[in-house]
Design a protein around this nucleic acid. Structure first.
Lengths: 165, 165
DNA sequence: ATTGGAATGTCAACAAAGCTGACATATTAT
DNA sequence: ATAATATGTCAGCTTTGTTGACATTCCAAT
């Protein structure tokens, strides 16, 4: 509403421009996951393990249910991943203090080590892209990504790193 | 090199900011695929079919080999998808004129109809996000995504829509 | 105190979509 | 002629998602 309707300003909403954005998203996501993927394929782990490790690292002592909400998969699917991570000694599952039905998850020392390895690789690529693009571009990048999220995921996205998730 | 090193400018490259970008990418990608996914799950198709349909629509008469390069999967994997799309009359495969080993792919009328349906849904979300973020943010978004791509994919990304791919 | 619901775990079966390896068939290039 | 290329296909395996069913444990409310 109320945008100036010059050719130049409306152009960025044209089908062609939006299609190019879609393709950019597709190709960029491949770069985004490639480095961690390469590390993981040398082990018996995949992208699902990476995601679990990432969000456990970011929200230590998170519950299984909270993790389910963030990852958007079924408990059976997550459970299969967690089972191997726990069996391999990368993740620790503790019964909740107040609610003993809950399991609180945290990385072990070995888990934290792998997390650092994966995160370092992914952040290095991301940081290189950020540096190449510059701060204003990064701000725009973040703005558009946020606008693309579903509302409930946007809330979860903002809640990460806060005190009580 | 040579960036001014004030707190404000270096902050966007901090681990915390980069991590947030990684998470934004993860959550946004879910929104990015969600609308087409919902349409596809009512049929016997998945995301792999969508990708094939998308790039055939964008580069009509593309060859199997070219598509393989863009999608980054094995020929067996792509062939499984193409086989069903051809059998269902959504994609047409023609023997090449100059090189008869090649198969040139294009959408049939039915294929183009599904492509429009999927593309409309995905572009609508993307356009809403673009509009909410504004043209400068979109420019930054595109810049960062390009910087995240692998070099060979960046070339392919730019080659799409050109005369001779 | 019992009952109902929530959180979790587990089993089984299945599907989508990736992979490797092997092999066949045209066709083109050397 | 021979080698390389483009494609298709078969078989089998992996990861990661899905449903459905069922058990356990615990909290909370009647």
């Amino acid at each position: 509403m109320g945008e100036p309707q010059t050719d130049d300003v409306s152009h960025y909403l044209s089908d062609e421009q939006v299609r190019q954005g879609i393709e950019a998203m597709f190709f960029a996501y491949r770069g985004f996951t490639r480095d961690p993927d390469r590390i993981l394929e040398t082990m018996a782990y995949g992208r699902a393990h990476h995601r679990a490790i990432h969000f456990i690292a970011r929200s230590p002592s998170t519950t299984v249910n909270n993790l389910l909400g963030i990852l958007g998969v079924t408990k059976q699917s997550l459970n299969r991943v967690l089972r191997t991570l726990i069996a391999d000694g990368l993740v620790e599952s503790r019964v909740g203090q107040s609610d003993k039905r809950e399991r609180h998850l945290r990385l072990t020392e070995a888990g934290a080590k792998l997390e650092r390895q994966l995160s370092d690789a992914q952040r290095a690529r991301m940081r290189d892209a950020y540096r190449a693009a510059g701060p204003e571009a990064v701000a725009g990048f973040r703005t558009v990504l946020e606008a693309m999220m579903e509302a409930d995921l946007r809330r979860k996205y903002h809640a990460i790193g806060e005190q009580d998730p």
